[in-house]
């Protein structure tokens, strides 16, 4: 018999009784939900606590903010997805900088340019799918335009986040979007830049992936910036 059959046979031979069924939905229905301004504040506070730079922007002006941040960091090579609307807008804004960075697209599979990707790209710009208020997280579903390594390999990750997609918690996000019906090859929660505490419990950022995570958090017009940052 195969290992598979042996294992399954052993497991099936064991006495089994049905334990009480857990009700995850009922549990989360009963937990308090952060909404509106409170949700945004909580999300930002948690992200900042793990050294994420959260920049509040509007739909009209985020490309300019991105360009400023790129310029301020002296970034020379930046990876983005010109095939997407936001990627094209970003590329255009960057092109107008006095010293525009080299704007690379992820045009070919990783296999041909791993070393370049690791050694020569300073930053990447991607859009994220949604956010989670309770834990201060971003949700990313990498795809052919913005592959997995864009949010992982370059030392700086700029993430464009539409705050209207901020969910109170992970459970709300996956049920509202019905993830169970079909998962992408890779889905991620990202809560800050890469870090480690493996040396004497001392936190150090930039362990393997991004050293910096900069979130351009796009606010709808009705949200007042002053209120958002008040006693934050």
């Amino acid at each position: 018999m195969s290992a598979r059959e042996n294992i399954l046979t052993k497991l099936r031979a064991a006495p089994r009784s049905a334990p009480p069924a857990p009700d995850v939905a009922a549990y989360y229905a009963g937990t308090p939900k952060l909404t509106g301004l409170a949700a945004l504040k909580h999300w930002a506070a948690l992200m900042r606590a793990v050294r994420t730079e959260v920049l509040w922007v509007r739909e009209s002006d985020w490309p300019r903010t991105l360009a400023e941040q790129v310029a301020a960091r002296g970034i020379r090579t930046l990876l983005l997805a010109p095939s997407t609307a936001h990627g094209a807008r970003a590329a255009a804004a960057l092109a107008e900088l006095a010293e525009p960075p080299l704007r690379l697209g992820f045009d070919q599979t990783i296999d041909g340019w791993k070393a370049t990707l690791f050694n020569e790209v300073d930053a990447a710009f991607t859009r994220v799918r949604a956010g989670i208020a309770l834990t201060g997280s971003l949700i990313a579903w990498p795809d052919e335009h913005e592959p997995r390594t864009m949010s992982l390999v370059p030392p700086i990750h700029f993430a464009l986040f539409d705050t209207r997609t901020l969910y109170p918690d992970f459970f709300s996000a996956m049920s509202a979007e019905n993830w169970a019906a079909g998962m992408p090859t890779n889905a991620l929660l990202i809560s800050g830049p890469s870090k480690t505490s493996d040396i004497q419990q001392t936190v150090a950022y930039g362990a393997h992936g991004p050293r910096e995570l900069v979130v351009l958090a796009v606010l709808p017009d009705e949200i007042d910036l002053a209120e958002l940052e008040a006693d934050a």
């Binding site: 793990v50 309770l134 201060g136 997280s137 998962m183 090859t185 890779n186 991620l188 929660l189 890469s194």
Partner: peptide, 14 residues
């Protein structure tokens, strides 16, 4: 409250 990454893999490169 959460780790930096929660990585959900549902298959090889498509």
């Amino acid at each position: 409250p959460v780790t930096t990454y929660f990585n959900m893999i549902s298959g090889p490169r498509r």
